[in-house]
Design a protein around this nucleic acid. Structure first.
Length: 419
RNA sequence: GUGAGUGUAGCUCAAUGGUAGAGCAUUGGACUGUGGCUCCAAGGGUUGGGGGUUCGAUACCCCUCACUCACCCCA
C-alpha cells in the first residue's frame, strides 16, 4: 500500500462515527444543562504554554509533545491537552470580568508522541470541561455528578469513580517530606523508575504498579492525613456532597495525577479491564486553583476534567450498545431513461422536504436496485418504469412487510408512508 | 524508549519444503420488471518488502517495514 495513515492516528468511519456522534451530542446536551458553554481553542500553541503548566519534568513535556519550529522559528506545539489553552484563552480574553463562575467545554483532537496501543493513540480526541471562579466544593461535586449523568445517559453503569485530594502548596510539601522520610532507607529496593522519582517526583511512587514497590510503600503516610485545615475541610465537604448526591466512590489516596498543575480534588473514572484494555482511565480531572494566577491572570480557582473519546467509544462498542444507523426512507428504483428522470425529480422534491431518498444508478437491473434498497435498510421502494409513466402511477413497496400498491406520480412526494 | 506477538483475497482465517485455498463480503445469473432465503458462477493475490538456504520457500534463516498487545506514561 502506497499511502497509509501515520502511526497512532486513525480514521473514524461509519458505522463507528454514529457512536461518536451520539457521545458528542449527549455531552452537549448534559453539559449545557449545567451551564457549560462551548469554546473552540486552537490546536497549536506556543510550546511554553504547555511546558509551564503541565510541568517541565513530566513525561508529556519531556518526551511526548509534537513540537516544531514554525517558519519564523517560533517553537510551536500541537496541543497535548486542553486545559492550558483554555486557561490562556480565559486570561487573554479577560473572561474573568464576566460573572463567576464561568464554565466551558471543548471537544477535539489532542496529540502525544507515544507508542500506540489499545486505548492510546498519537492523535486522540477529548471532550473536556473547565470551570473558573469558585473554590467551593459544591462545584467539584456538581462536576462529578454531571459526568455521572453523562455516562448514565450512555447506559454506562460499570464505571468506577475514584477521588482524592492532593492538598495545596501549603500542605503538600509537608506530606512530601513525610513520604521521603518514610522511604529514605528503602530507596535502593525501589524499581529504577521509582528511585528516579524519589528525586524528581516522589508522589508518583504511590501509583507505581510494580509489585515490589507496592510492598515497600505499605504503611506509607497518606496524603489525606497531611492536608492543611482548609484542604481538609474542602475535601470533607466535597465527599459529603457526593454522599448527598448519591454518588458512590472510592477514596484512593495513592491516586496522583500526572500533571503538575493539580491541587486539592483529583478524580478518575475507570472501566473494568476487560472492557477497555490496560488503559482503563476513561475520564480524569481535578482542581487547579493556582494555574490562572501562574499564567498571569487574577487569582482564580478552577476545576476541570477530560473524557478520552476513543476509550469511551471502545467501551460502548464492547457493551454492544445499539446506535441507529440512518437508513433511507425511500429508494427510487427506475427502469429506462425517462423513468430515471422522473425518479430524479421525485427524489429531489423529497430531499428538499428533508426526507432521505436514494436513487438507483448505472442502469442496474430492477433486482439489483431492490437488493441495494434492502441493504441500505430502506423502508419503501418506489418503482417507476415505462408502464408507470404511461399510467401516471408509481408502484410502491414496503420492504419491511412486503406490502405493495400504487400511487399517482404527481402525489408520490406526499406518500403517507414517508411521513 | 523497552519487550513480546502477528503480517496470505475487501474481512476472518487455512495450506507441516512440492501447482496458493475456504467461509463471509462484492458482482452477475437461476427469476427478461420485484429485495431478504436457497443454488450456481465470476472477479479479486507480486503470500508486507529485500536478501539468504534449497532442485523447489507462504512455510526455514537474516535484515527491514507495518500492525497489535504489554511496560512506561496517560484520556
Amino acid at each position: 500500500m502506497k499511502y497509509t495513515a501515520l502511526k497512532g492516528v486513525h480514521d473514524i468511519l461509519p458505522p463507528d462515527i454514529y457512536i461518536w456522534q451520539k457521545a458528542e451530542s449527549t455531552a452537549r446536551e448534559i453539559f449545557s444543562a449545567y451551564g457549560f458553554q462551548e469554546i473552540r481553542i486552537p490546536i497549536i500553541e506556543s510550546t511554553d504554554i504547555f511546558a509551564r503548566s503541565i510541568g517541565e519534568t513530566t513525561d508529556i513535556v519531556e518526551k511526548e509533545m509534537y513540537t516544531f519550529p514554525d517558519r519564523a522559528d517560533r517553537s510551536i506545539t500541537l496541543r497535548p491537552e486542553g486545559t492550558a489553552p483554555v486557561v490562556r484563552s480565559y486570561i487573554e480574553n479577560h473572561l474573568y470580568n464576566l460573572p463567576s463562575p464561568q464554565k466551558f467545554f471543548y471537544s477535539g483532537p489532542m496529540f502525544r508522541y507515544e507508542r500506540p496501543q489499545k486505548g492510546r493513540f498519537r492523535q486522540f480526541y477529548q471532550i473536556g470541561v473547565e470551570a473558573f471562579g469558585t473554590a467551593e466544593p459544591k462545584l467539584d461535586a456538581e462536576i462529578i455528578s454531571m459526568l455521572k449523568l453523562f455516562l448514565e445517559k450512555l447506559q454506562l453503569k460499570e464505571l468506577k469513580f475514584e477521588v482524592n485530594s492532593i492538598g495545596c502548596s501549603k500542605c503538600r510539601p509537608d506530606y512530601k517530606k513525610a513520604l521521603l522520610n518514610f522511604l529514605s532507607d528503602k530507596v535502593s529496593d525501589l524499581c529504577p523508575d521509582c528511585s528516579r522519582r524519589y528525586i524528581n517526583n516522589p508522589l508518583r511512587i504511590l501509583d507505581c504498579k510494580n509489585s515490589s514497590c507496592a510492598e515497600i510503600r505499605k504503611g506509607s503516610p497518606k496524603i489525606t492525613d497531611y492536608l492543611c485545615k482548609e484542604c481538609k475541610s474542602h475535601f470533607e465537604e466535597f465527599l459529603s456532597l457526593l454522599n448527598i448526591l448519591n454518588i458512590s466512590y472510592n477514596i484512593n489516596p495513592d491516586m496522583v495525577r500526572g500533571l503538575d498543575y493539580y491541587t486539592r480534588t483529583t478524580f478518575e473514572i475507570t472501566s473494568p479491564e476487560q472492557l477497555g484494555g490496560a488503559q482503563k482511565t476513561v475520564a480524569a480531572g481535578g482542581r487547579y486553583d493556582r494555574l490562572v494566577e501562574e499564567f498571569g491572570g487574577p487569582p482564580t480557582p478552577a476545576i476541570g476534567f477530560a473524557i478520552g473519546m476513543e476509550r469511551l467509544v471502545e467501551i460502548l462498542k464492547a457493551l454492544n450498545s445499539d446506535f441507529c444507523i440512518p437508513a433511507p426512507k425511500v429508494f427510487i428504483a427506475t427502469i429506462g431513461k425517462n423513468a430515471g428522470l422522473e425518479g430524479l425529480l421525485i427524489a429531489e422534491k423529497l430531499r428538499s422536504k428533508g426526507i432521505r431518498a436514494e436513487l438507483g444508478y448505472d442502469n442496474a437491473s430492477l433486482k439489483s436496485q431492490l437488493r441495494r434498497a434492502d441493504k441500505l435498510g430502506s423502508n419503501y421502494v418506489f418503482i417507476i418504469g415505462d408502464d408507470e409513466l404511461q399510467s401516471g402511477m408509481v408502484k410502491w413497496k414496503n420492504l419491511k412487510d412486503g406490502s405493495q400498491g400504487e400511487t399517482g406520480i404527481k402525489d408520490a412526494t406526499e406518500f403517507k408512508g414517508l411521513y
